[in-house]
């Protein structure tokens, strides 16, 4: 493929004291693609996304945005470079309205500091409609929304405020079946826009197969496999998911007990 990667990271290492959380990770994400980042607990997924979103600084290695080397000293730097992260807790406040959540910290104000509430309601409604939810009343509290709808709100917010790389941290975990599908649909709609690169972090092999174009597998802080959907065989994905172990080995280990 001749597409240019929006973001490319090279040989990222992160040490916490003597502990090597990441031991040289490469990753490229392309606009209009879903890049699934898979790995077991403790594989280094969280550390990697915290580096990409500016929360942690890498011990070594570099991040390139559209070919230019960038350093993220804090989350604001990352956000300015177009990295939008939707964490598992979504950074959403339950008691506040959809609109107030959508614009939290970035409210539209008139000259005297008062809120342009009607305009904000309209934008929140329209932006959520674009990726699939017709929310008739954006003044209602987020506490009344389902988990899937909250995901959509957080994603729509990240896109509206300029995310070119959308990092989704396990968006389908802790949701019911139907809501998981809603979230996957939302992700596909974002993908269909064609201008946003999505990093989809998940445990769930089935979900990743449904929507991912490209894969990176992490185990113990290293990339143990990566490639496009075509390059990886289905069986391969399952093996890599298990941290490189053969499923047969696991079966044997289990039956030995």
């Amino acid at each position: 493929m001749s597409k240019q990667a929006y973001m490319r990271v090279e040989n990222i290492e992160k040490k916490f004291g003597p502990f090597i959380a990441l031991g040289g990770v490469d990753l490229s994400v392309y606009p209009g693609e879903v890049h699934a980042l898979l790995g077991d607990n403790g594989a280094g997924k969280s550390t990697l996304i915290k580096i990409l979103s500016g929360v942690h600084q890498p011990s070594s290695g570099s991040i390139y945005i559209e070919g230019a080397k960038r350093e993220f000293r804090n989350p604001r730097d990352a956000a300015a470079a177009g990295i939008g992260t939707v964490y598992q807790d979504l950074a959403i406040n339950q008691l506040m309205s959809v609109t107030r959540n959508f614009f939290m910290g970035r409210e539209l104000t008139s000259r005297f500091g008062s809120l342009r509430m009607d305009e904000m309601n309209q934008i929140a409604h329209d932006e959520m409609l674009k990726i699939g939810i017709d929310f008739s009343d954006p003044t209602q509290a987020v506490g009344t929304m389902s988990g899937g709808q909250r995901q959509t709100l957080a994603i729509a917010r990240a896109i509206y405020f300029g995310a070119k790389v959308l990092i989704l941290d396990e968006p389908t975990s802790a949701l019911g079946q139907k809501q998981q599908m809603e979230v996957l649909k939302t992700i596909k709609r974002v993908r269909a826009r064609g201008d946003i690169a999505i990093i989809f972090i998940t445990h769930n092999e089935i979900h990743s197969r449904l929507i991912a174009d490209r894969y990176t597998f992490l185990a113990l802080g290293k990339v143990i496999g990566s490639g496009t959907k075509a390059e990886l065989e289905g069986e391969d994905i399952r093996r890599l998911m298990a941290g490189g172990a053969e499923i047969k080995d696991l079966e044997q280990e289990l039956s030995a007990i």
Partner: peptide, 19 residues
Amino acid sequence: GSWIYATGDNKESARANGV
């Protein structure tokens, strides 16, 4: 006002959004 509500509701998510 929005910031006051956001701070009291969940200060971590308020902070994550730049409040």
